[in-house]
Design a protein around this nucleic acid. Structure first.
Lengths: 202, 202
DNA sequence: ATTATCTATAGATCTATAGATAATGC
DNA sequence: ATTATCTATAGATCTATAGATAATGC
């Protein structure tokens, strides 16, 4: 039995992390409180000292779900990477088979949109914040356009990405799944890649 | 107690219809066998004379799920509607708030992709057939292009539609939800609407 | 003394099966 | 006689709570 208040905070964070991964893998109802606690090396009984209810954990876990984009944005910033190259990197990363095959570390929306639609408001509010945050970042990639056009491009591209991974995961035909990912990657780059600043043709 | 063999077929079909609706509304695990039977006016016990397991019903229900597109394709055929007008009708219908708000009668993939990814092969195979069928119809809308380009356009547009409705359902911010639907509808028409045959500009 | 975690369990599910009942259809 | 459906229930979940245990921290 661990006991310090500091270790309780660590425990809390570990439960949330495990839930953030497993919920994306198994769905929001695909794993029970007991199994989540076991994954962190604890037992059921302690759970309700950390969360008011299972639903409270769902909301916290949604807030904690990070896809792989943050690193790409950070790297682009650091290297002074141009917008078109960043856009390509985001698309390639999102539509990589590795993302399709590892929902536990992947995009919240590709994994959980449908269940979020049926969830308590706390979880949906957390998801909405994640969505606005992702759209905000993506909008900057299109900043050579006027603000409304840039936001529209972000919403359009994000929808396309999420739909493609959703379909690629749903089918059990590997060829079709691969075709969806590669086709949509090509399509997004051909149709939505931002122009380099001051560049009107490529 | 109804008993004839003919009425058994009717009963079977009613169970599948109810499941096709309720699974899209509540998720594949959101309603139990007992409640599904109750919805058709029957009790649990009879279920396993109709289906070998709950999973067998899931697969049959997936096969039975029809979105609203068939009617639009039929009407276009009948009226000799041009491709661009049909494309616009498909987009507007799919991205209508009524579709977002009524998953039970809507697109299989917007409602169940993530759960299908975790389902038994029977259900995923049924879903794959539905997907190929939808892509096949949509590919014809782009038939003024060469075959590979038309199929690519269909995959791209379908992904975008599914992602948009997924996001519009997930958020609990009504303004954002409406913005996603209208933005993606405008974007698809601007970027992917097929040209009328023989028409190089609009 | 407080509290983070443990064991144990109540109460509410849900799938699947067993055996009874009452129509169908030979 | 067969069988479509019914009632009842076994066995396996899962959420949440009660009460015990053993460190922490005043």
């Amino acid at each position: 039995m661990g006991h310090s208040q500091e270790s309780k905070l660590e425990t809390h964070a570990k439960i949330v992390e495990a839930a953030a991964k497993r919920f994306r893998e198994t769905g929001l109802e695909g794993i029970g409180v007991a199994d989540l606690m076991k994954e962190v090396g604890l037992t059921v009984g302690g759970f309700y000292k950390h969360f008011e209810s299972r639903g409270a954990l769902v909301a916290e876990a949604v807030s904690a779900m990070q896809g792989g984009w943050d690193a790409l944005f950070a790297r682009a910033e650091e290297r002074g990477q141009a917008k078109p190259a960043l856009f390509d990197a985001l698309v390639d990363n999102y539509l990589d088979p590795a993302h399709r095959d590892n929902p536990g570390e992947g995009c919240l929306f590709a994994a959980l949109s449908a269940e979020l639609a049926r969830s308590e408001d706390a979880a949906r509010t957390a998801a909405t914040q994640k969505l606005e945050s992702a759209l905000g970042k993506l909008t900057k990639v299109f900043s050579e356009q006027r603000a409304p056009a840039a936001r529209a491009a972000a919403i359009f591209a994000y929808s396309t990405l999420i739909g493609a991974v959703s379909l690629a995961r749903a089918t059990n035909d590997p060829a079709l799944s691969a075709e969806i990912l590669s086709t949509v990657a090509r399509g997004l780059k051909a149709r939505l890649r931002p122009a380099t600043a001051g560049q009107s043709k490529r």
